[in-house]
Design a protein around this nucleic acid. Sequence first.
RNA 1: GGGCAGUUAGUUAAGUCGGUUAUAACGCCGGCCUGUCACGCCGGAGGCCACGGGUUCGAGUCCCGUACUGCCCGCCA
Length: 622
Amino acid sequence: MGQFISEVKRTHRCGELTGKNVGERAVLFGWVHTRRDHGGAVFIDMRDRTGLTQVVFDPSLANVPEPLRSTLDGASVAAAHQLAHAQLRSEFCFGVEGVVVSRGENVNPKMKTGEIEVVAVRLEIFNRSEAVPFPLDDDIDTAEDKRLAYRYLDLRRRPLQEALVQRSRANRIVRSYFGEREFVELETPFLVKYTPGGARNFLVPARLSPGKFYALAESPQLFKQLFMVAGFDRYFQLVKCFRDEDLRLDRQPEFTQIDVEMSFVSQDDVFTEIEGLLRRLWKELLNVELPVPFPRMAFDESMRRFGNDKPDLRFGLEHVELTEVIKAHPEGGLPLFVEAVEQGGIAKAIRVPARHPLSRKEQDELETVCKGMGAKGLARAKVGESGEWTQSPLAKTVTPGLRQAINAATGAEAGDLLLFQFGKESVVHTVLANLRLHLGKKLKLIPEHGTDGRWNFLWVVDPPLFEYDEEQERYVAAHHAFTRPHDEDVPLLETDPGKVKCYRYDCVLNGFEIGGGSIRLHDPEVQARVFQALGISEAEAQEKFGFLLQALKFGAPPHGGIALGMDRLAMLMAGAPSLRDVIPFPKTQKGTDLMTDAPGSVSAEQLAELKVRTLAVEPPRE
RNA sequence: GGGCAGUUAGUUAAGUCGGUUAUAACGCCGGCCUGUCACGCCGGAGGCCACGGGUUCGAGUCCCGUACUGCCCGCCA
């Protein structure tokens, strides 16, 4: 044991052997991927992270041509075969020394290395393996929780290895891109002071300040602005961020951002830098030329046409605004519609073209989907040959005038299906935005998971600076309080804050928000007015953001930036169905780690040392 | 906090109207096999049907609850 490694060094990797290597001596290290034992000859598909090579243990050396054959030690070959036959099993880790030979008639065109095989002259088993709990093939349908419990085995599988290797290359590209462009890579603290608002923070008890807590940084936002004040001019960082919010397919509690901040830039300058980066990533990793500049869409337009601020532009099924149409037909015969509109709500529809027929049952399923998102129901109407509505309770009540107006607004033709939502604007938008995505997948306009080679990038721009919070009955910052409003809207800060647009932007790809940022507010006078509009007093602002406000007083440059979600980028570039597939050790939707069983209990002593007492029902161990 | 779906052998699944020994494939173990590559053939082991309660003469199957997993709404400045 161990001798093998000190005596011989690896000469090749499994995935890189080709016909050009025929005749070479080869030493390979790897794992048993599959084994086919014919008694007389044993075939092993040997795997390392580069791929597979067939290793054959054949004491007859039938496939080794002379004069090479007579140079090989027959006794050693026979011993290797015997060991392979008797012991070598799935997922054993082993080393092999042999010669690369052509497979001749037996070429396997399905394998990258199918032209050749390695005839084993010497075998060393480094470590045996228990039977693995699930197959390690490329395509498996093993339940996620079992894969996560044995993540180190799941990570032996090629799709995950390739995704992670690609992500590693992406990191390198990011660093060289920004490095070449005079950006400085700077680090920021993870243990920071808690600031209210925004994402919920993970808290870390501060042992040296009993009773006090650090927060884990949800982003380096304020620090990177201070880099600008300090004059670093152009900053980037690949940085972990932590947010204690509920998880989704594309959200993990700890994730990585490509964090960027620049001084003396406009919104367009930021876009140009980022488009250049994304172009480089797509070119080098996917060999795809992304057209630039990316299209831009106003936030309001995105909400109107798609019901959210991250539209998937790969397919239609756009929302059709019907509020005004209904208002124009007060006699229309749609009490529910009218009621919703009168109460300040809106009415919208999606038209499903006749070429995508949906059965009654499928329509009912759509209604279930909608109800799950807060809809009261899903009104629908099938459009007949002469524009009449059928298969709908609306058919009898709606007046011909309103019906024709709605048909005209939606562009409805015979055989089309109209799906309506009416009520509170936020609910209508949520329901229809998700219904549109659901339909897109159901009708195979976009894939259920992963990508289809279409890359529809989009900048969503000019959102409102404030959002009205109905619970608190006041305006809150839609992004953060340091976003620069459009100059022409500044007067509205006092008169109509809801109308103020700002230099905030999101980068959207195929319906995923892959990045967002803003041009920052560096004018103290406007800043004060923004705080006032938010109802934040001078004292309050000082307490929360005092260090930043102070910093902005010392000749702060105009600046702005963006943060890109590295995990989401990696997921989309890999065509992976989930963020978990590009994170080596991800967490479940409940934020647990099924391998380490984190989060775990701690001892009473540990808690006492931190001056922390838990109210949880389950007492800590020990 | 809420909605939907799921949980049966190591894995993936089937399991009819509630009925007596819970199936299959793959994997695993043993045997045979010299050109396989989804190797083949023969044999074998392997199950608290997630957990708890209920209905019933009888529950994998029906009902209620809990846990866990996934997707979504809320949440994510």
